[in-house]
Amino acid sequence: MKTIMLIFAGLCLLGQIAAAQQPAGGLSDYLPGDNEVAGLQLDGPPNTYTGDELFQMINGGADIYHEYGFRQVLEASYTDGNRLRVRLEIYKMASPASAYGMYTFKTSGQGQELSIGQEALLQDYYLNFWKGNMLVTMIGMDSEEETVKSVIDLARAVDRRITRAGERPELVDLLLSQPAAISQAKYVRGPLGVMSSYIFDTKNIFQVREGVIGTLGECRAFVFQYPDSGQSMAVYKSAANILKSSTRFSNQDIKEHTCSMVDRKNDCVLINQAGRFIIVVMGQDQSEVKSVSDRLTEKLDTGGDS
């Protein structure tokens, strides 16, 4: 009996050790094996962070991921054994919309688009792509040609392993389509996403849960979507009330569905509540701002107030 118990305890212990040494779980399936990309091997075991553990990895940088909807990340490094090093981060987000949104947040307009995942952008020394609910970031530690090639090759290897694709948010598809197509679109899911583009106030006065920020002509446009026109109107009224006395703006002219003002950079800011949307357009040329706002309002009205 004693022997059986000892064997059982031993097996339990072995089981615990095996569990502790297990690779990072599901996300590790996406990791390229050693030399799958010529000459590159894993530089130490990968790390996984789930939920709030992301703060251990990137501290305050984690908040924006949570705003979009974060589940888990796997972090690993590859090396050629010499100086070449590439870091890899595979983020499992809550949905394809979350992954797409974070992708737009992390990428800027400049870079080289590549056919990896559903969308990929190579910028100098790093590459981001999204596919399904996965967001993948590869970072070379320098921008040498050999490093960048490894970044791309590793990204392709990860892409091959992610089999499921997903849809972009409807609002994005609508705003990227003609007429009045927005360019350099960023899909936002909360105040941090908005504030990284523009600070209307230090509080989340537009109570943003979903929106798109982009450019149209010479203007910047913000389109925030709400569940219905009632909520959109309530948010508009509250925001307009705050902006009326804000020292960030001057020449405030507040009306029932529209307000205009001038910001510190002398940009004309026009805010329009239409259906379940709030549309903010800003730019130097007042007439162009008005025109862009009208075109966007007309376009979004066709989307209806569901």
């Binding site: 990137i58 305050g60 940088g61 992390k106 910028q123 100098d124 020394y125 790093y126």
Partner: peptide
């Protein structure tokens, strides 16, 4: 110039 403090971002 973006994605701080962790990066990566445009340099």
């Amino acid at each position: 110039t973006e994605n701080g403090p962790f990066g990566p971002g445009r340099l």
